[in-house]
Amino acid sequence: MIFQLQPQFMTPQEYLEWEEQQPIKYEYMNGEVFAMTGGILPHNSIAINITSALKNHLRGKGCKVFMADAKVGVSQNGPFHYPDVMVSCDPQDQRARKVIYHPCLIVEVLSPGTEAFDRGKKFRNYRQIESLTEYVLIEADRLNVECYRINEKGKWELTAYSLDATTIDATEVEVDFPSVDFRCPISLLYEDVVFPEENTEDSADR
């Protein structure tokens, strides 16, 4: 997705009230709002795959899975973002109707236009959420998953997964999301995804 700066300056409450009336979604940081536009189809497929897998895994466990239309608030005063996928197991979020404030897992699917933002400023914002223990970045143009997790010292550590990696018995590597006790083969996250080198259609149809 692509973020475009808009010229309005708003308080958090003004933003929340104003955005409800808008035809598209806007994120909010430091009094400024940013319009969100559509991403590429592989981005959408990956988000659907992980949402479906997490939904099935967490059914009946008191957690909720949210996709891109769900807004997360770093605090009551923002920033406010729209993660591609997030999970909350906090009772306060089970009753929420507009904003999620206590996610334990956030997933962003990377695209060229937003990768630097997802890795940088957005991750810095997310780290301020006390309930968050895992932040996952999934690349859309190759099989590569990066998981940042809080360790026992309160520091964020990186674990990376790729198709090239194999286990001791040479089987496919599994991606592990300990924040929600979930594991799956890395290929499951990329089911039905067509990578650039595989796409032989005319560029106008992409």
Rank of each mutant, 00 (worst) to 15 (best):
S111V: 01
D205H: 10
E32K: 14
D118G: 05
Y28S: 14
L5S: 12
M36Q: 15
E157G: 03
Q22P: 08
T167F: 12
S131L: 11
I150R: 13
D69R: 00
C104G: 03
F34R: 13
N49R: 01
W18H: 15
S75K: 14
T37F: 02
V65F: 10
P7Q: 04
G113W: 09
K64G: 04
I168K: 14
H57L: 12
C104D: 00
N151Y: 01
R124L: 05
F117R: 15
Q21S: 05
Y101M: 15
A68H: 03
G154A: 03
E139G: 10
C147F: 03
S88C: 08
K71G: 02
P42F: 06
V193I: 13
V136F: 02
V85Y: 02
F80H: 02
A116E: 09
V193Y: 14
P12H: 04
K122A: 07
V72M: 09
K61Q: 12
Y28G: 11
R206L: 11
V193D: 08
I168V: 12
G39Q: 07
F3Y: 15
S88D: 06
E191A: 01
R183D: 03
R124E: 02
R142G: 07
M1R: 13
M36P: 04
G62A: 14
P112S: 12
G154Q: 05
S162D: 13
Y190M: 10
E157I: 12
G120H: 03
D181H: 09
E198H: 07
D118C: 14
A165S: 15
